[in-house]
Simulated scan of single mutants.
Amino acid sequence: MAREQQTAEEMALEVKRLTELLVAAGRKDLLLRAIGVPLVEELRIEAARGRLSRLLITADYRFILTDYNNIEVELQPVHKAVYLLFLRHPEGIEFKHLRDYRQELMELYAKTARWMDREKIGESVDKLVDPLDNAINEKCSRIKKVFLNLMDEYRASYYIISGHTQKHIGGRVWYERLKLITLPRELIIVEGK
């Protein structure tokens, strides 16, 4: 059958057959060379994506991974507020522009820490949005650690707040160093919405 007449499914079966032959011959090195390391990495990420859990955010701000036996992602209120802020902004946020999100972060923190003094919340948020303070990096590192304790790094990469760089060209080149959560939004369930 001519290649242009093969369907994608038929090509996949042919790749599978050839892969099995190379593996049986003990030539994984040739298979890796043929596929290429970057594609292997993409395939590992795609495989992880198929095993992602829905993230339920309850009315009392508990984070539950419903497809992983309802495991709770245990975060402090400040971490929950930061996480919720980045979930609300799938386009990403640059840390140096966090001050623009101060009020929103204040509101989220007040909701996740209802018993906490408003003044203390304000002090914490001021540290988070201060571009000269490392507080936001510390909070993101803690969130990452919690997810890495619950799952492998490829699945965790969808749940953590991670970097993404956009390059803009328009007379000059500049970069946006956005931070975002790449978890597909259809996997996020907010109780009461």
Rank of each mutant, 00 (worst) to 15 (best):
I45P: 00
D117K: 14
V190L: 11
R102Y: 10
R172H: 14
G171A: 09
R114F: 02
V23A: 08
P131H: 12
L148M: 13
E153H: 12
K179A: 05
E91N: 08
E191Y: 03
A12P: 00
S124L: 10
E20L: 14
D29C: 05
G92Y: 00
E186K: 14
S124T: 08
E9F: 12
I161L: 02
L85P: 00
K96A: 01
K16W: 07
L75F: 06
N69D: 15
R142I: 01
R177I: 06
I45C: 00
V15E: 13
L21K: 15
G171P: 01
L84Y: 03
L178S: 08
A12T: 14
Q166D: 12
P77V: 01
R51E: 15
H97S: 12
Q76V: 03
E107Y: 08
L32T: 14
V125A: 06
L22H: 06
N137T: 14
A24L: 13
I57P: 02
E46N: 08
K28Y: 01
A2T: 11
L183F: 14
R51Y: 07
K16D: 10
V129Y: 10
A113N: 11
E42V: 07
R118M: 10
F147A: 06
H79A: 13
L32S: 11
A24T: 09
T58E: 07
L21N: 13
L180N: 09
R33S: 09
V125N: 07
L187S: 01
K80M: 01
A34T: 07
S162D: 15
E46D: 11
A59M: 09
R27G: 03
V73M: 03
K144D: 09
E4M: 12
E123F: 06
V82G: 02
I64F: 04
K167Q: 13
I143G: 03
D133W: 08
L30V: 11
V129D: 05
I161N: 00
I45K: 15
R54H: 15
E153P: 04
T182S: 15
E42H: 07
Y154N: 15
T7D: 10
Y159M: 11
K193V: 10
R51P: 00
D100T: 05
E176V: 00
E176K: 11
T58G: 06
T165I: 14
K120M: 13
R51F: 02
L39S: 04
I189A: 08
R88M: 11
V190Y: 09
Y83R: 04
F147L: 04
A25H: 05
R102G: 01
A48S: 14
H79P: 02
S157M: 12
V82C: 00
E91M: 07
I181K: 10
K28L: 04
I57H: 11
N70H: 12
L128W: 08
L85V: 04
Y175I: 08
R27P: 02
L21S: 06
I71R: 15
K144L: 05
E41W: 04
P184M: 13
E191C: 08
H89G: 02
A47G: 09
L132G: 08
T112F: 00
S162F: 06
D152Q: 03
I57C: 02
I143D: 01
V125I: 10
F63T: 12
T112R: 07
M116Y: 07
E91D: 12
R177M: 02
L56G: 03
L22Y: 13
L108M: 03
F95N: 14
K193R: 09
Y159S: 06
L22V: 05
K28Q: 14
E72N: 13
